[in-house]
Structures are given as structure tokens and as C-alpha cells.
Design a protein around this nucleic acid. Structure first.
Lengths: 243, 243
DNA sequence: TAGATTGTTAATCGATTAACAATC
DNA sequence: TAGATTGTTAATCGATTAACAATC
């Protein structure tokens, strides 16, 4: 119906609006909130309610979801269970992902024991390090291999996602090995910019940078919006990277 | 010179364009890259070079910096040392921040030992927990107090920033106590939306969500841009939350 | 039915990019 | 000087919000 007429140039393969990164990020927040609503016994939720919980407008919630299909019921809202299933399918977490972690130090060990991964559909199935004292150990039930066995173990376990938790100077080398091993996505905790081929996705989490963002907003207070302090109710801060 | 004429309506207190959150986030990336350039012995860098390293345009780099002043030299570029000092001042990390951490479990302990915080101007000076076995301990040289002593210790040490690393169900309660203690900014690792007064800033890091973002981009591959594969050189992935 | 709420289009708003005079 | 690069304004692009017919 749409895109059919008056566009003789491009024939097949509609350009597909391409989902903005920000939309996907909010999708995860919707999912988290929906799961909590279900735990609290809620059966349905409106875009207005869901938005209010996260500090978004109802229009934004509907628009975000509309990128992927029609999930709501006019007059009713969204059925929580149903929407959770839909969002998980969109995000790809309706099936479990085996994940590798490189670096079993301070941070790596904490991540190995993080329950949230398991709960949301990720299983850390292998760890890698080069410390002789660490290699061969089993941490939180996960075996630590020597980094030289990366390709082998990744292939054996059909691992597509990896977490990098090594010191900054080692990160690029590790990333190169992960790419060579066929890894498709990297969650990078090392405070460095990684050079990666465009075929590999990356999400970076720099813990010091997160604190810097806080430092900035705490330092520059009173500047931004203020005029409309009409809301008496204590509203949730915008959750993920707000401030 | 600017804003002087033809604006008789608003008299004092110029509206101040208000810095977009995305700009501040890139500022941290510029800082990280500049620090590496200095380590590599570079004295100056152009907006084009700095942008290239991070996957931004030169115009964006200049525009971002222009929000805060004039730091460059036409024909030369930016002096790295000088720009680092300027950016740190903007972010507020030219002075050290004492930070509290609540939750000395799995993740909390890892954060207590994280060197990156110290390097970028943050000192974790106190930890809090409620586990009798943990309270009283000293971890990585940081004393663990009982959570009931929050207000007291926060005031004594003039702590303005706190890290929340407790289980999800405890997070809101902890946040309330932090607010009551006068904390101004919270780095939240608990996978929940916190309700906070607008006077308190928050940055949220949900580790499972970061993996979900990866899962999405790895799942939806081949969709987005592709047409211009003119770059043969392996360019850095956009560093912080790219993909 | 009246009330609630969706999906979607159009209007608004904001952020990025291009372009260029000024400067070293 | 010619070449490089800034800071800034204007043009473009994209994302958010408002509005509303369709639906339950």
C-alpha cells in the first residue's frame, strides 16, 4: 500500500527506515519495566502509563513500538505478557545466547557471577585469561581457558557475543583475536576506542566515563530547565543515562 | 556582541542554549582519546583527526567544544594538554571527587578495585553494606560501614556522588537513603528505574541491557547502511554505544 | 453508548553537517 | 604567501510530539 507508487527508481528491497539506536535502547527499558509490572500482577498497560514510569511521552512509546509492528489494543492498551514476548523477540533474547568473557580479573569475575545476564537470556559459557594462576580454574561454574584457545572454544560453543574485561593496553589485541574467531558482537569494558570491522557490533561501557557524566551534571546545576516546576509528584529520573 | 540587539524582551539571564546530553557524553570520549594521544607523544590534534579516531565529523567536534568556549588555534588545531585541562574543567574532574559505594557484593567489590576511577579523578572513600560478615571489613583499602551510618559518613567526607551496586529489590530504598543523606548524583547498577527528586542526577548502567543492545544489532544485520563501502581502511567502531 | 486508547500522519523541535570568513 | 584549520552561521537531516480517525 505505501511506497508502491511514484517510486520507479528503487524497485525491490524497500529502504526500510532503519531503527534509530535510541529506540532500541528504550525497548530494553520497556522490557525491564514490563517484567516488573508482570511481577506486580499487572495484566495490561497503556502507552501513557508505561511512558510515565520511564519519563517518556505516550506518543514516544507508541512510535517506538510501531517500528516493529502492531502490539496494542485500542481502548485497552498492551497486554504485558504479550508485549514482553514481542520485545524479547525483537531484541533477539527470546532464545538464549552463549557468551564468552575475556579477562577473568577484578571486573571479569564480577561479571561471571552476575545474575542479571542469566535472567535476561545470556549464558556465560567460557572465560579466557593468560594468567597461569587463573587459567584452568573454574569460576562461578565457568571454566577459564588460556586466551590462545579462543577460536577453538568459540567455534565449539557457537559463541557469537563476547565481553572484553581486560586492561586497556590489551583490549585491541583481544578484540582482533575475537574478530578472527568470528565473534559478531563485543561488549567492551576497556576504556579504549576499539578498531573493528563494520561487520562486528560493539557496545562500550566505560565506568569512569559514567561517573564523569554525573560529575558534569552535578557541577552544572540550576542551568537547565527549571521554569516549569509544576510537577509536585516525584517523577522517576529518566532511568538509563538521564540526568 | 551577539545576543545584544533586537531582543528587548528577555533582559538578564540569557536562556543559555543548554548543553545536550549527547555532547557531554562525547566530551568524555574526546578526553579519553586526548589522553591517549598525549601518552603517544602528540602535542596537537585537529578536529578532523580527533573526529576520525572516534567516528565523528570534524564539524561535530568543533561544535561540541564551541558550547564551552574557544580552545583551538586556526591553522594549528588543538593543543592536547591544553584541551585535556579544559575538558576536565568542564566535566568537573579537574578536582578529585570522593565517592561512596553502596553494596559490597560481587559487583561492588570489583568497582572498589577499579583503577580507572582513580585515574580519572574519583576516589571511593567509603563502602556500605548490611551483611554482618562484610561490615567492618576493609576492601581494597576502603572501609565497609553498615548502611545505617550512611548519612553520617557521607557528611563527614563531603561525599556528593554515590554508586549503587545492590540487588534490584533493595535499590530504591538505598536511593531514598542516599537522597536523604544529601547525595547529589547516583551511578545506578541495579536493573530498576529509580524514583528520584529532580535535584538529584542519575546515570544508569544496566549490564544485561548492554548485552541486549548487542543481541539486537547482531540479529538485525545487513539492514542498515551498506551502499557506501568505499572505506577500505578499518575504521573504529563508534566507541561508546555504537553498533 | 461513551470513554479509553491505539497506530499513524503532520507539525515541531533539536541536533548534525556543510560551508565559509577569519586567522595563524 | 599558500595551506591548514578554527569558530560560527545557515541548511539539512532526523527524532520527538501533537493531533486525530479508527477501534475496542
Amino acid at each position: 500500500m505505501k511506497n508502491g507508487r511514484n517510486n520507479p527508481a528503487k524497485q525491490s528491497a524497500a529502504p526500510e527506515p532503519a531503527v534509530p539506536k535510541a529506540v532500541v535502547s528504550r525497548l530494553s527499558l520497556y522490557l525491564r519495566e514490563l517484567q516488573r509490572l508482570i511481577r506486580d500482577g499487572r495484566a495490561t498497560v497503556s502507552s501513557h502509563q508505561l511512558g510515565r514510569l520511564l519519563g517518556f511521552t505516550d506518543a514516544q512509546v507508541r512510535k517506538d513500538l510501531a517500528y516493529f509492528g502492531q502490539f496494542g489494543y485500542p481502548g485497552i492498551g498492551y497486554r504485558c505478557e504479550e508485549l514482553v514476548a514481542a520485545v524479547r523477540k525483537i531484541l533477539g533474547t527470546h532464545e538464549r545466547w552463549p557468551v564468552a568473557i575475556v579477562g577473568a580479573g577484578n571486573l571479569g569475575r564480577a561479571l561471571l557471577g552476575y545474575k542479571g545476564f542469566t535472567q535476561q537470556g545470556f549464558n556465560i559459557v567460557a572465560a579466557f585469561d593468560i594468567e597461569p594462576a587463573t587459567v584452568g580454574q573454574s569460576i562461578e561454574g565457568v571454566r577459564v581457558y588460556h586466551a590462545s584457545r579462543l577460536s577453538e572454544v568459540v567455534a565449539e560453543n557457537k559463541i557469537r557475543l563476547a565481553i572484553v574485561a581486560v586492561p586497556a593496553p590489551a583490549a585491541q589485541g583481544v578484540a582482533d583475536k575475537l574478530v578472527a574467531a568470528g565473534i559478531e558482537g563485543i561488549l567492551n569494558f576497556a576504556p579504549v576506542t576499539l578498531s573493528l570491522p563494520p561487520t562486528v557490533s560493539m557496545v562500550g561501557v566505560d565506568l569512569a566515563i559514567e561517573l564523569e557524566q554525573l560529575s558534569f551534571s552535578v557541577t552544572n546545576r540550576g542551568d537547565a530547565k527549571e521554569p516549569d516546576a509544576k510537577e509536585t509528584v516525584r517523577l522517576p529520573t529518566r532511568s538509563h543515562r538521564s540526568a
